[in-house]
Each structure stands twice: as C-alpha cells, then as structure tokens.
C-alpha cells in the first residue's frame, strides 16, 4: 500500500460528493497490479540548525531548473517558532515534500501529476497538464507553482532558456509547456542516471543541496539504511510538517 499513489483510505476520503467509489477502487487496483517495484525512496533531511537563511538553495534551484519569474521550487521561510520567547527566526528551506500520500495527486483531473513508483518522486507531466491549478490549491505546503509565462529580461547573449527538467530540454516558447502548467520541485530528477540514482561526486545531486553553504540540506535514499538521511533519522528526532494531514512527507526537519 505504501507504494500506491493514493491509499485506499485516502481515496474514500477524497472521493467526495460525486465519486463513484467502485470505479475508483478498480482504477487503483489496476495501478497497483502494474506498479513497478520501488527501488529508492528519495528524501531529504533539512537541518534547520545548520541553515543560515542565505537562500542560495532558492537561487541554485532556479538556475538549475531555469524557472521563470514567480516560480520557486523552494523558498526559505524565516519565522520564529510559535511561542518563541526570543523572536529568533527559524530558517527553513521548503522544497516539495514528495509526500507518500500527496493531496496534490488525487485532485488532478487528468492524472498529469503522479508519484513515480520506482522512487517516490512526485512529478508533473507537462504535456498532459491542462493548467487548472487545482493541485496548487490542494497542496498543503505551497510547494506548487503556476507558470504564467513570465520571462526574465536578459541580454540576448544569454541564449535561449532551456530547462533540463525531466530530461526534456524544453525551450520556453509562448503558449507551449511548461508555460501554462503547474510546476514543482522534482528533486532535480534530470540528474539521475540510467539506474535512477544520483551521484554526488559527479555533481549529479539536487542543486539546492549541492550549493548549501550551511550543509543543511541532506539528500538521499530513505530506504537505504546506510544512507546519510536514514542514519540521521535513526539517530535524531526529526519532524515533518503538518503530520496531522496524513500526507507523510519524504522531507524531514531537524530543529
């Protein structure tokens, strides 16, 4: 069940006013029958104690993914914890949490957004997405962004803006995807190799984690007990945001 994009419990909950429950279950069953085996579970542990709030992650991500103005796959909040007596801000970078139980997925009218069965990354199929932005409303973490087609004003020498996302290398052309689509952090998935793994030494590593001056973004395979992320989670008490929603984020925080 853990690997299915939508748990049954969740499904019932969300089927809402109109859903024909039987059909929905059938759909999920089919999806499960054909589900490839999960090979990795990519996730992050973000150590807010190491984060200095510099926002290098925000910029590195924008440059890596060539996102337009207004689209930030991660942002850094700088709020004091509720009830803080010192008023000291807690710096917190906030990519997509690649929820195990992501509310953004069941709402999509065209199945354009889904969770990769092999490694848990939540992706958007730009060619399928109709740009209704329902998923933006549904994500409880503000992790999704709409591409309204804004452009940066740069010298012509900067060349065309080609995003490597999903290894699709799309140029920005008015009216064409990803303009008009929902967009989000995809753990810099284009940096994976053929086997679907990342290689830190070769620089094939999420851009935000790669640049972080505080070394606060620890990325890795949560399913691999030897990984740095798994080790940290074993040894520390980590928290996830809005646990009460049952979304089960793949991104943990150390406070």
């Amino acid at each position: 069940m853990a690997t299915s994009p939508v748990s049954r419990r969740d499904l019932f909950k969300r089927a809402g006013a109109g859903a024909v429950v039987g059909a929905a279950i059938a759909h999920t069953a089919v999806a499960e029958a054909t589900a490839p085996v999960r090979k990795h579970h990519w996730g992050m542990v973000i150590d807010t104690r190491r984060c200095v709030g510099c926002e290098a992650c925000v910029i590195a991500c924008k440059i890596e993914n060539k996102t337009p103005p207004g689209v930030f796959y991660t942002v850094v909040t700088k709020e004091p914890l509720a009830g803080s007596t010192t008023g000291k801000p807690v710096f917190m970078t906030k990519p997509c949490f690649h929820c195990e139980n992501p509310p953004c997925i069941p709402v999509c009218p065209v199945n354009a957004t889904y969770k990769r069965k092999t490694d848990g990354i939540v992706v958007v199929d730009y060619d399928r997405c109709i740009g209704c932005r329902y998923c933006l409303a549904a994500c409880p973490y503000g992790a999704r962004y709409a591409d309204f087609g804004d452009e940066y004003d740069l010298l012509p020498m900067a060349g065309e803006n080609v995003s490597p996302e999903y290894k699709q290398y799309r140029e920005r052309v008015p009216g064409q995807s990803p303009i008009g689509n929902a967009r989000k952090c995809q753990f810099c998935m284009h940096l994976q190799d053929e086997q679907g793994t990342y290689d830190r030494e070769a620089g094939r590593w999420p851009a935000c984690a790669k640049t972080c001056p505080g070394h606060a973004i620890i990325f890795g395979d949560l399913d691999d007990p030897e990984s740095e992320v798994a080790t940290i989670l074993r040894e520390h008490n980590a928290v996830r945001v809005k646990e009460e929603l049952g979304t089960e984020p793949s991104v943990y925080y150390l406070l």
Binding site: R116, K117, T118, D119, V124, Y166, G196
Partner: peptide, 12 residues
Amino acid sequence: ATAGVVRGAEGP
C-alpha cells in the same frame, strides 16, 4: 533514465 515517469506512451 526516466523509466518510472513513462506511463505508456503518454507520460513525460
């Protein structure tokens, strides 16, 4: 490389 992404012909 994006095996998990491709759902039939219509995936990204």
